[in-house]
Amino acid sequence: MQYGRFLLRRVVHSVFVIWGAATVVFMLRFLTPGDPVTALAPPDAGDEVRAALERRLGLDDPIHIQYFDYITDLMVGDFGKSMEVLDRSVLDWIFWTRFLRSVELAISATVVAIVIAIPLGVISARRRHTVSDYSATLFSLGGISTPNFWLGLMLILLIAVPVGFIPTGTPGPLLHEAVGDLLAGDPGTLGDWLRFMLLPAITLGTYFTALLTRLTRSGMLEEIGKAYVKATRAKGLPETLTMYRHVLRNTLIPIVTILGLQLGTLIGGAIITETVFEWNGLGQLLIERINARDWTMIQGIVIIIAIGFVTINTIVDLLYAYLDPRVMDE
């Protein structure tokens, strides 16, 4: 009941935010220099050709009608059509595979980050002022200070080139293909997937890992000092359980929200990582379309990323409220 109301409020809020984001993206077009018809039409085109193009692109309507059309199109999942290759819709262009590649990369990086950062942060906090603590601190400082495109290049230079069997370009198989082959008895595809994913995931995940390590460490230290930890020990609960069930859990609750917001950085980082590793995903497409000055495509990609980002944040907020119901009361 209480949670239901909270859920409703959050969902309404995120729908509002997405609508706002769509409006911003719609307005972006009016800032672009030059008009699309001139860009598209042959230089010697007459007025009729231009008028036909204008109608084709829906630019002859008054602005509020265009806006209304844009929003209603979005609601039915029509993200617009390319300006360069007419009639090619954004979704056609994005293909399912490009989207999947980007998502796979982002998720792998997140997994790398979580698997490394949380134990590292915990160890660092519990063995404060030891060599392990200092190394973890140094690592996380370096991690949040290293531009990931450079890190990617350095990994190629120092690992991929000397080792030889770690590919640095054009992505390998998709995960579902790899799993399919594995089930069919051929583990080779999964190995390929891993080989291709290894460096990009590390590249993209390092900043996140470093940040998460820092947050976990400082959060744990703050939490360990609280009175309830002493009370938990007084109950005789084994130390490991005190750490997992109480301290770590409470440390992670606020971190979840911060990480939700930081996902923006991860998505941004993915664009760069894709460029470095010639990873054929959404980010590379965005860069390519920007260089082609294909505004409608850019709008489509940006709004798709924004919707994904807002959705993830909403889910994270709902999770937070589930873990720590106090937030519903504010």
Binding site: Y228, K230, A231, L237, R249
Partner: peptide
């Protein structure tokens, strides 16, 4: 010995419970 032979009650109950776990669960832990 803690929690079995020795138990302790603290001064400030609000800070001596973990805020994000139900009271029942925390007692059940003991």
């Amino acid at each position: 010995l803690r929690g079995t032979d020795f138990a302790m009650i603290f001064q400030d109950p609000t800070s001596s419970f973990n805020p994000s776990i139900t009271v029942g669960t925390q007692i059940a832990e003991a």
